[in-house]
């Protein structure tokens, strides 16, 4: 069942101390009674959820249940959509990200994001990784080089690409590209890493590597992962939220959700009766 277990782990891989922070107890993202409408269609109905610091939180549910919408609300990627309206609060570090005067760019810099399909830019590997720093105005080469190496090491990609940093990122395999996107997501040392079905376009071996990586990054970052693969949620996450039709049905630690769910809907979804 556990694919990751059959893959030999990388003994040389060790997350650098750079990412470790003190005081990771408590709630990193506090979602309170959050409603969202695409035009007139309501996509999220009063979702309330506290995502715990330093842990991996999985969001599962059938297609169209609003789990991706909720994830994209966390760094306000939904702002790109016209005719969107929201109601409710999402608090990050004590302030409401939908409050007035919030600097969306600053917010996004605190949250790395990895997408469903690997989306490296048409640049070199090096430029891809340091992109968040470049747009932040960092020009000092020593900092950029250091960050590039750290991020690539954290994403378990350094040894594979260290000799071809100046080559195009588009020449990498899908799995490498996705790990590159993770490296890019953590390059600016964010607090939160959002992952929107990061393995859905990858083969099982690449998926296993990503899952292994999530396990390694856990503790250094608060990770929120949307997945439609329940086994994956069970393998990688500490907490799991089950959503259905825009509502949060059940939220709790992963073991409880998968072994003793309280709600009948959760029970039938995880046993594969619908979805």
């Amino acid at each position: 069942m556990n694919v990751a277990a059959s893959i030999p782990t990388r003994p040389e891989f060790e997350p650098p101390a750079y990412h470790v922070r003190e005081g990771r107890e408590g709630v990193a993202l506090d979602i309170r009674n959050f409603n969202l409408w695409y035009g007139k269609a309501q996509a999220l109905h009063g979702v309330s959820l506290g995502i715990q610091k330093g842990m991996v939180t999985a969001m599962i549910g059938p297609s169209g249940c609003g789990k991706s919408t909720l994830l994209r609300s966390l760094n306000r990627m939904n702002d790109l959509i016209d005719d969107l309206s929201i109601d409710g609060d999402i608090n990050v570090g004590g302030f409401n990200i939908y409050g007035s005067g919030v600097d969306v760019i600053a917010l996004r810099k605190r949250m790395g994001m990895v997408f469903q399909k690997p989306n490296p830019f048409a640049m070199s590997i090096y430029d891809n990784v340091i992109y968040p720093l470049r747009v932040d105005g960092v020009t000092k080469k020593s900092i950029l080089d250091e960050t590039c190496e750290r991020a690539l090491r954290s994403a378990a990609l350094w040894d594979e690409v260290k000799d071809r940093l100046k080559e195009s990122a588009l020449g990498m395999s899908g799995g490498q590209q996705q790990r590159l996107c993770i490296a890019r997501g953590i390059a600016s040392d964010p607090e939160v890493l959002l992952m929107d079905e990061p393995c859905s376009a990858l083969d099982p071996i690449a998926t296993a590597k990503i899952e292994e990586l999530i396990g390694a990054l856990k503790g250094h970052y608060t990770i929120v992962i949307v997945t439609h693969n329940m086994q994956q949620a069970a393998r990688v996450s500490d907490n799991t939220a089950f959503m259905y039709l825009g509502r949060l049905i059940e939220y709790g630690d992963t073991e409880t959700i998968f072994t003793r769910p309280k709600k009948a809907q959760t029970q039938s979804y995880i046993t594969g009766q619908f979805g």
Partner: peptide, 19 residues
């Protein structure tokens, strides 16, 4: 997805267009 990737990195709209 490319634009989103850039915006999610904290790039402004102009930076996204430019780079």
């Amino acid at each position: 997805s490319m634009r989103e990737g850039s915006l999610a990195c904290g790039a402004s709209k102009w930076q996204t267009i430019r780079y």
